[in-house]
Each structure stands twice: as C-alpha cells, then as structure tokens.
Amino acid sequence: MNRFLLPLSIFIVVLVFLGIGLKLNPREIPSPLVGKAAPDFSQPQLLEPTKVFSPADMKGKVWLLNFWASWCSGCKTEHPVLMDLAKSGEVPIYGMDYKDQRDEAMTWLSRWGNPYPVVGVDDAGRVGINYGVYGVPETYVIDKQGVIQYKQIGPLDPETVEKKIIPLVKQLEAQ
C-alpha cells in the first residue's frame, strides 16, 4: 500500500467514529446491573410509614421500580406517562422516593396523581446507590425471579413505553 495514503486512512476511520459518536449520548451510562438480581432493600413506605416495602414482596411478578423525587423536573415530565401506564394496567409501577422531603412528596402525589400502588422512601439515597442510580428519574424492569431486565435512564416517554417496556413486560410475563 502507498504509505502516503496512511494519514488519510487513519483520518477516515476517526471520521467514521466521530460520525457514529454524533448519534450517541455520552451522558447515558449503561447499568452493569441489567441481568443481575435486583438488590434487596426494605424501606418504609411513604404513605404508611409503619409498613415496609421490599422487592421480596414482589417475587413472581413482573414490575417496574421507578426512582423519583418531588424536586426533580424530569419526573414532572415523565409523570403523565406513568399515570397512563398505570391506568392501562399492563404492569405495576412501584415508586422509590429518592432523597426527598416526605411532606413535599405527599403534596406532589396528591396534586399530580399517584401512579404507584406502593412508594418506598429512600431518604439517604442508599437504595439509589445500590441500584446504580445517578440521576432521577430512572426506571428498572424487574422480572418474576427478581432479576433486572432493563434500565431506563431519564424520563420515560410514550414511545419508549410502547416500543420497549410493554413488549418486554409481555415477554417476561409469558416466561
């Protein structure tokens, strides 16, 4: 090969990668937890503080775990999507109120509506760390064996719910 073509070839390779890079989101960090057992926890419930919420209660069900907070603007964007999904009855969405004030969280739910059958409270952000949460909202799809099958980083939108979440849930249900 002509050695004078070498710089051009290297440049073309770099250019192709830069082109692909334009379509990628460098801030989205895939979770190493997908395919692994959902970390256990047992947290007080938001609405009934004397009761606890634990993933062990969910064995045998396909469910979503949604980390949210009243201070999080992305959660407000996502909220109507969650309400619709909850109404459709396709899959139960359990909430985890992440590093939040209890009264503000309650006000938020009563004002905008509550899509969650149960909301856990993660005051110190420990559950969040165990789940590798780095920015709310984040949503996990957990299967009947308690294994995380999918992680959504950032707000869910109707398209993701339609094209990813619901088909995945159906497939997991069928197993």
């Binding site: 960090i29 895939p30 979770s31 190493p32 937890l33 760390i129 165990n130 789940y131 590798g132 780095y134």
Partner: peptide, 8 residues
C-alpha cells in the same frame, strides 16, 4: 462502585 456504575 463498579458493580453499580460500571467501569465508567
């Protein structure tokens, strides 16, 4: 840390 957040 890497178990939760990966090599990132």
């Amino acid at each position: 840390l890497t178990a939760r957040y990966g090599d990132f």
